[in-house]
Design a protein around this nucleic acid. Sequence first.
DNA 1: TAGTCTGTTAGACA
DNA 2: CTGTCTAACAGACT
Length: 263
Amino acid sequence: MPELAEVEIVRRNLERWWTRPASDLILDDPELLRDGTPEGLRKAFLTATPELRRRGKYLLFDFGEHTVVAHFRMSGKIVLEPQPSGRFARLSWAVDDGWLVFKDPRRLGHVELYPSADLPDAYPALAKMGPEPLDLPGPELAARLSPRRRLKDALLDQKVVAGVGNIAISEIFWRLSLPPDVKVAALADDDVAALAAELGRYFRQLIEVQSGDEVVYLGEGAHADNPFDVYDREGSPCSRCGTRIDRETIGGRSSYFCPRCQS
DNA sequence: TAGTCTGTTAGACA
DNA sequence: CTGTCTAACAGACT
């Protein structure tokens, strides 16, 4: 599922839906909670309305004394439903207009409860996370990219930049006409500056385009229209030059690209 | 049935 | 120490 844009959309939706302490909470799947106790979780949700923050692909509910760290991994999301505890529900809590339900078919997502004062140190992934990619200055990005690495590997590394995922890589490489396996060392300063600018533009656009009560992921249901230029479009014509989009596994994950534009 | 999956991490290896 | 690859997590979908 979710890269930065989808998590940000959930954050904004929660700000609309969740305006007072929850009136009830059901931990549908106890394994969702990897750190902290169910009682502590319940008390936090029922006592305060959290400040909602996003850091990379993480969602943070800051209740004051305690903070919940949530991650959707591959298939998680939070939606507003009339009832709690439906199919794939892992956690449900009651708000004014219904129930907020953390759904996660693959159950890779997780939630942790920490004393706020312990963060981010108690959570290494947060403590080491790189800068947010919206409005990231080119020179700052350049300084964080090891020349020896493949650009794709570096950008997927959350310690380098926060929030970039596999789809964003294909889309941004296509926009900038970069070969899918391009090495950092092959980039000129101008290329890195353009990359930094495109990262911000890409995520801002995607937040705009996908905003709504529920982001439907590719492959979810039969419909799922594809909002991307190249991702999951193997064999379709490139919208710039008509060449068929190709797919290759790079760094263990699929890259989609136009073999003519991006060579 | 086998392959695929918008993520992250640990371990093996060069 | 740096970089790359694989497996594992767990399940649904094609």
